[in-house]
């Protein structure tokens, strides 16, 4: 019931949370409690960790949304998303992109059912003599294109919708 932080290992999501901090740190992994101590660090990248009495040397580094670790003489890569992004993913975000200002559609590059990657330019609009790219905020499939080329629209108008994620 308490707040969990979500980590992905080999495609499987795991929840890590905190059960207690004193007299020792107790963290939960998927609801199971583990006694944890960080018994110092060799340097910034290498920590000494004790979990349920087992000692581990942990090397750790970051890259985007991944934490790379070497622990127990094996290397792993764990995915992490900040809570807001994770919540958006869980919700499956049925994004509808809307116009920030009135204008006219210059180009439509996607049609319903098209698979798009984050950053793909879906629609180009012109407003106040400026051309503005409407880009996909995430990877997904186009559900509806609400406008056509040369169509004018008002501020707040729906331009394009992506399917909700599973």
């Amino acid at each position: 019931m308490a707040l969990e932080y979500s980590f992905t290992l080999d495609g499987v999501e795991h929840g890590v949370s905190i059960a207690a901090r004193q007299p020792e740190l107790v963290l939960t992994v998927d609801g199971r409690a583990h006694q944890v101590a960080e018994s110092g660090a060799l340097n910034e990248e290498c920590a000494l960790l004790t979990v349920d009495g087992r000692r581990y040397q942990v090397w750790r580094t970051w890259e985007g949304n991944r934490i790379h670790l070497r622990i127990g003489n094996r290397s792993f890569s764990v995915g992490y998303e900040d809570a807001i992004t994770a919540a958006q993913h869980h919700a499956g975000g049925d994004d509808t992109l809307r116009a920030d200002m009135p204008g006219v559609v210059v180009a439509v590059n996607a049609s319903a059912g098209a698979h798009v990657a984050a950053g793909d330019v879906l629609i180009v609009i012109e407003s106040m003599k400026m051309q503005i790219n409407i880009v996909a905020p995430r990877e997904g499939t186009v559900e509806t294109v609400h406008v056509a080329v040369n169509q004018t629209f008002d501020k707040g108008a729906q331009l394009i919708s992506l399917h909700a994620e599973a």
């Binding site: 932080y5 980590f7 290992l9 795991h14 890590v16 963290l27 992994v29 199971r32 583990h34 944890v36 960080e38 920590a47 960790l49 979990v51 349920d52 087992r54 581990y56 942990v58 750790r60 970051w62 934490i67 670790l69 622990i71 127990g72 792993f76 764990v78 992490y80």
Partner: peptide, 11 residues
């Protein structure tokens, strides 16, 4: 668990 804890403590 240790791996995930190590990852969490890296955040």
């Amino acid at each position: 668990a240790a791996l995930l804890i190590a990852a969490a403590l890296g955040v």
